[in-house]
Every structure is written in structure tokens, then in C-alpha cells.
Amino acid sequence: MYEEIFFKRLTQLRLEKGLSARDMSLSLGQSESYINRIENQKMLPSMTVFFYICEFLEVTPKEFFDVDECPSIQILDIIDDLKSVDPQTLQHLAAIIKKLRD
């Protein structure tokens, strides 16, 4: 459970900064696919690299894991769920969401 939160939170914070996974990896002194492998749940960073990630993203470790303050994590969960929905249902859901915004 905590690993899944970690992967999603890393993606969220990186996207909020407008960074590509490749650019972030290289900025951290890692291989160009490093962050991508983490976000795709293939590996976890060492504790030392985690602290570098927090510093790079300008968040404390506490802020990194403070998901109660992050509705974007819920949005990422919904996006993951939507990937398995058939196209017609997806269109219906899009219409519902649009109607809710109006």
C-alpha cells in the first residue's frame, strides 16, 4: 500500500513541477530511465536518493507522504481505473464529469 502511494506521489510532484521523468533522473545524477522505473513500480530508490528526490522537488519527506493534503493522488487513482474502462463507458463518464462542472 505505501509503495503504491510512493509511486503515485512521485509522479504527482514531478508533474506539478513540469518535469519529464528523464530530466529529473539526469538532474539527480541517475540514468535517464531511473525515475521512469520507479514510477512504473519496478524499483524503489535508496533512502539517500529519496532525500535527494525530496530536496529536488522542494518538499520535506513529511510533505512527500502527506497524501491527505493531496487530492491529486485521488485523481491519479481514478485515471488508473479509467484505463480499464471500455471506450463507450469512458465517453459516458466524460459527459457526466462535464455536466458536473457546468
Score class of each variant (00 low, 15 high):
45 P>S: 10
52 Y>K: 15
56 F>I: 00
56 F>T: 00
55 E>T: 13
31 S>C: 06
51 F>S: 08
28 L>F: 08
36 N>W: 08
45 P>E: 07
59 V>S: 09
30 Q>E: 13
40 N>M: 04
44 L>T: 07
30 Q>T: 00
33 S>F: 07
34 Y>T: 04
52 Y>Q: 15
27 S>F: 05
47 M>Y: 14
46 S>N: 07
48 T>Q: 13
58 E>S: 13
59 V>R: 09
34 Y>S: 01
40 N>F: 00
46 S>W: 10
59 V>G: 04
32 E>Q: 14
31 S>K: 12
58 E>W: 02
42 K>W: 02
55 E>A: 15
37 R>Q: 13
58 E>I: 05
59 V>K: 11
34 Y>F: 15
51 F>D: 07
47 M>G: 09
59 V>F: 07
53 I>H: 03
56 F>Q: 02
26 L>K: 11
49 V>Q: 11
27 S>T: 07
26 L>H: 05
62 K>R: 14
49 V>M: 14
44 L>R: 09
47 M>A: 14
42 K>C: 04
28 L>Y: 13
38 I>N: 03
53 I>K: 03
35 I>L: 05
54 C>H: 03
46 S>Q: 08
41 Q>H: 13
43 M>S: 14
33 S>A: 10
29 G>P: 08
40 N>V: 01
45 P>G: 13
59 V>L: 06
30 Q>G: 01
57 L>Q: 02
57 L>N: 00
29 G>L: 06
59 V>M: 05
46 S>Y: 10
40 N>R: 11
37 R>K: 13
32 E>G: 00
50 F>M: 06
32 E>R: 13
39 E>T: 11
36 N>F: 09
55 E>M: 08
49 V>G: 03
32 E>P: 10
49 V>F: 04
49 V>T: 15
29 G>Q: 09
50 F>R: 08
37 R>Y: 07
52 Y>L: 14
43 M>L: 05
51 F>V: 06
62 K>F: 13
58 E>Q: 14
43 M>K: 10
35 I>C: 04
43 M>D: 03
27 S>G: 11
54 C>M: 05
53 I>Q: 03
55 E>D: 13
30 Q>I: 00
30 Q>V: 02
45 P>N: 08
30 Q>W: 00
44 L>V: 08
58 E>C: 09
28 L>A: 12
41 Q>W: 03
44 L>S: 06
29 G>Y: 08
48 T>S: 12
28 L>W: 10
40 N>H: 12
56 F>K: 11
61 P>S: 10
49 V>S: 04
46 S>A: 05
32 E>D: 08
31 S>L: 04
61 P>D: 05
50 F>P: 03
52 Y>G: 03
38 I>R: 01
44 L>M: 14
30 Q>N: 04
36 N>T: 11
61 P>I: 09
46 S>G: 15
59 V>E: 04
55 E>F: 10
28 L>H: 12
56 F>H: 14
36 N>S: 14
53 I>R: 05
50 F>D: 06
51 F>W: 07
26 L>T: 06
57 L>I: 01
56 F>Y: 15
49 V>C: 12
35 I>N: 02
50 F>A: 09
